[in-house]
Amino acid sequence: MPSMVGPPPDVPPKEPPYTAILPAKPFHSRLHSPSSRKTIYDRNLNRTQTTPTSLPSFAYLFNTLITYHHSKSGSVSEIETRLNRAGYPIGIKLLDLLLYRQARAAVRPTRIIDLLQFVHTTLWRALFGRAADALEQGVSNKNEYMIFDNEPVVNTYLSVPKEMSQLNCAAFVAGILEGVCDAAGFGMEGVTAHWASASGGTGGAEGEGNKEEEMWPGKTIFLLRFGEVAMRREEAFKAGGG
């Protein structure tokens, strides 16, 4: 019979069954603020809602952003991805700001159509002072929708070199869209920007429908691809008679 007495065997101390929560206080600011209290917390969120600034200045800055990302990219699609990522965090924050600013109750869109209308009208007006030009559902894939802009403001004054004619710098705007849709809980597969005409933004279209293309050489299609979860939720809404 083994003895019950004697020193206990060397066992490692047991892990406590819980992990202590770190007393994190992320909103306990250590920042200095001016004595005039001109911080972002003291300002009306709507203060600059309709303030104009110079479009050329935006163009200089956007050009700088593109040049920077170009210098870090090996391909056209990489530039577009990087521009998309640059716009994405803007979209995440814009959703709540724009909802807060609208006259009716600040309810997030939960149906795809509501979201698309919000993007097509509210978001476009806030950024570019007008609604987008058209909104369509994709023909082949049910989860694809397209928003058309005949003349994206961000592409004013931009010309893309011929060897990169596929590049559409409105990818930055596509990133903003993707941020807005993701923040609303639609888990996008992706939002991308494409030239409407085959020849890209350089003009010189040929063949069918070229009148339209001549009139709007910079016409851009924003392709919104919804994720599976969003599509299933939409089905559930429909099944529930919504």
Binding site: T51, T53, S54, L55, L65, Y68, A86, I90, G129, V153
Partner: peptide, 24 residues
């Protein structure tokens, strides 16, 4: 010049774009 010879865009587009550049 500002009133008659400058094309305009919403200030917030400029502000947010500058912010995203610095943040990058």
């Amino acid at each position: 010049v500002w009133k008659t010879r400058t094309e305009k865009i919403n200030l917030e587009v400029l502000t947010l774009t500058y912010g995203t550049l610095v943040s990058q």
